[in-house]
Nucleic acid binder design. Structure first.
Lengths: 335, 335
DNA sequence: AATACTAGTTTTTGCGCTAAAACTTACGGA
DNA sequence: TCCGTAAGTTTTAGCGCAAAAACTAGTATT
C-alpha cells in the first residue's frame, strides 16, 4: 500500500496540490486559503493517514531542518551532559539532531563530516577532535553555520563557547600550591585539544608564578586508562608527587583506581583535584575537589550562537569563555 | 555558486547521468562501466568538488540510510553508555543516527516519532517511555523495523533486548535478606516501565519467599531527586529501614545525599544496593554493591536484531534477557 | 550470413514537494 | 461602465537522483 502524498490529498479534495501543501505547512493564512478548504485538507490528510515526505521537501526547498552534533564520545559524562542539553535546545527550535561521535579519531571525523554535508545539514555544533581543519574549511564553512564547543581550532576563527580552561587550571594548581604542595603531577588529556593545552598552560604558569621549577606533566588522553597508567608510573618513582591534578574526571577515576591498588590514601598520602565535576565526586571515600564547568551555560550559548548564524541575526559576540567554579571538597591536604 | 550535481559531471565528461551515478555509487562493476569512464568521472567529481545530495537519492530510492535512536535522556549514564555503543554499531553498518530524547515525556515521544517517520527512517531503536503504543503501532510498525531496548511494551510483541530485571532484583533483595535484613526499603523508578515493574516484582517475590511481610516500595522516577526524597521521608519514620534497594544508580545517588545529610553511615546504619553499575561506585566512601547490566551485550544484540530486520535475514530470536551480574562491594552489613 | 552474446552506455521517467507566477471571481468605488 | 483590488486558488516547473528499459557496437558462434 503506497504512502499517501499531497497529490492524493489534492485528488481526494478536488483542490490543487499547492493549496494542500500550503495548508499542511501552516501557510494557509499567508496564502488566504478559505476556512472550508483548510478544514477539508486537514481532515482528508488525517483520514488518509498522510505523512509528509521530508526528503522531497528537502530536495525542493533546500532546507533539511537538521543539525549535526559532533562530539568525541558519549562515554565521557561531560560530553553526554552537553549533548543532552544541546539536543534539547535543537529540538525546541524545531530542528532534528544527527548525533555523531568521532571517538577522538580524525579520520572518522572527516568521514562523518563528509556524510553530514551530503545530508544538507543546516548547522553544525562540534567538538573537533584535532587541530586539522582542511576538512572543515574546505567543504562549506562559509555556507554552513558552525559553532565549536569546548574545543576549537586555532586557525579557524569560528564562533566557540567553552570554559576558561587556563583560568580553571591556574586556580586549581594555585589551590594545591597554597596548600603547600611543591611536587605536583599533572595528568593531561588529548594533547592537540585546546582545552587541554590551556589547562597545561595554566598549570605550568601557576607553578612558575610560585617559583616551582618542577613541571611534571604527563599523559595524553581523557581516558580512565590514561589516568590509571600515569598514576601507576608516578608511584614507582622514588619521588612520589604529593598532589595530582587530573585534567578530567575520567582521568581522576584512573588515579583513584591506581591509588587504591597501591593503598595510598587521599589526601593523607596524595592530594587530588580534577577538572569537570560529577555528582558522585561528593560521595567518594574522600570527596574530590573539582573544577566545575558550567555545562548548561555552555550548551545554551552554543545553540544560541548557532541559531543566530542560521537566522542571520547578528551575533552578540563570536567567542565566549565561561569562568569555571571550583568545588572545594576534602581531597587536598594542607602540608 | 551552485553546488555541483551529477548532471554537471555528466556534462563535463560527456557521459550520461546514469553512468555518472553508477560510478559514484560504486556500481561500476555491476554495470560494466569502462575503466576510462570510471576514472574520468571520479576525477571530475573531485575537481568539481561534488557532494551527493542525500535528499534526492532518498526521494528517488526511498532509502534514507538513517536510523533513529530514541531514549529517555542522555543524562542517565546507563542510557548514555547504551546510546554510545548503539550509535557506533549503526555507523559501522553505514547508517547515520538521529538521536532523540523523550525526557520520559509521552507527548514528546509521540511528537518525535511523527517527525522521524516523515524522515523515512529505515529503523528505530527505542527505549519507550510508557506503555502507550498507538503512536507506534498506528504508524508503520509492520513496515518499519523496530527494536526495543531496556524497556518494552507488553502488548506489542516487538523484538527487544534487556536485562533480566526480575532476576537481578530478586538476587539483590535476597542478598540483603541473607545478610539478615528484614526492613528493606525499595525505591523504584518510572512506574510504567517494564524494567521497573520487573524489578518491583523481583523485589516483592524475594521478600515473600523469605516470609517477610513488610513490602516497603516507594518512589516513582529514575532521578536523583526521587532517591533523595524517598530516603529523606524514610528517615523520618520511627522505624528506619536497615537497608535500601535503589532501582537505579541515579536513585542511589539521591540516597547517598540524604544519608549523608542525616549523617547516617553505610553500611553501619543503613545498607545500600542499587541497580546499574557505575565506575565511581567502587570508590565511594563505602563502595556500593550493585546489579550490573551488560550494557555492551545489550547494545550489540539490539543492533544485530535491527539489522536482521532491515536486511530481512531471519531473526535468531525475538527477545533476549541478559543475566545481570552482582558486583559485591561493601555497602551491605551483616546483621 | 544470420544469430547470439557481451560490454558499455543512453534515454526516459518520475519520486513528492515547494516556489513562482498566473489565474478567476466577486465586489466596491470613480 | 470600467477598473482596481482582495480573496482564493491553480498551473507550471524542476530540485537531483536512481531505476528500468532500451540501445549500439563489436565479437563470437552456428
Amino acid at each position: 500500500m503506497k504512502r499517501t502524498s499531497i497529490t492524493d490529498i489534492a485528488k481526494a479534495t478536488n483542490l490543487s496540490i499547492s493549496t494542500v501543501s500550503r495548508v499542511i505547512n501552516g501557510k494557509a493564512r499567508e496564502y488566504r486559503i478559505g476556512e472550508k478548504s483548510q478544514k477539508l485538507v486537514l481532515e482528508t490528510a488525517k483520514k488518509l493517514n498522510y505523512k509528509p515526505n521530508h526528503a522531497a521537501a528537502n530536495l525542493r526547498s533546500g532546507k533539511s531542518h537538521t543539525i549535526a552534533l559532533l562530539i568525541p564520545t558519549l562515554d565521557n559524562p561531560f560530553f553526554a551532559s552537553l549533548a543532552s542539553k544541546i539536543n534539547n535546545d535543537i529540538r525546541e527550535e524545531g530542528y532534528t539532531t544527527i548525533l555523531s561521535e568521532s571517538g577522538e579519531n580524525l579520520d572518522r571525523e572527516k568521514e562523518i563530516l563528509k556524510n553530514l554535508l551530503s545530508r544538507n545539514i543546516e548547522g553544525l555544533v562540534m567538538v573537533p577532535c584535532g587541530q586539522e581543519f582542511d576538512h572543515i574549511l574546505g567543504l562549506e564553512s562559509k555556507e554552513l553555520p558552525i559553532v565549536c564547543v569546548d574545543r576549537y581550532i586555532d586557525e579557524l576563527d569560528l564562533p566557540y563557547v567553552s570554559t576558561d580552561n587556563y583560568f580553571g587550571a591556574y586556580e586549581a594548581t594555585e589551590l594545591l600550591i597554597n596548600s603547600g604542595h611543591r611536587n605536583i603531577l599533572g595528568i593531561q588529556g588529548e594533547l592537540q585539544s585546546i582545552p587541554n593545552q590551556q589547562r597545561a598552560l595554566g598549570f605550568t604558569a601557576a607553578l612558575k608564578d610560585a617559583n616551582i621549577d618542577l613541571v611534571n606533566l604527563k599523559g595524553d588522553s581523557f581516558s580512565v586508562q590514561n589516568g590509571y597508567l600515569e598514576t601507576k608510573l608516578a608511584l614507582q618513582n622514588p619521588d612520589i608527587p604529593t598532589a595530582i591534578f587530573a585534567f578530567s574526571n575520567t582521568i581522576a577515576l584512573g588515579c583513584l583506581k591506581a591509588l587504591k591498588e597501591d593503598q595510598l590514601r587521599i589526601p593523607e598520602d596524595v592530594s587530588l583535584i580534577c577538572f569537570d565535576d560529577h555528582p558522585f565526586l561528593e560521595f567518594l571515600s574522600t570527596p574530590i575537589t573539582s573544577v566545575a564547568q558550567p555545562v548548561s551555560d555552555i550548551a545554551r550559548l552554543s545553540t544560541r550562537f548557532l541559531f543566530s548564524l542560521i537566522n542571520k541575526t547578528p551575533l552578540e559576540s563570536q567567542k565566549m569563555l565561561f569562568k569555571p567554579q571550583i568545588k572545594i571538597r576534602e581531597s587536598i591536604k594542607k602540608m
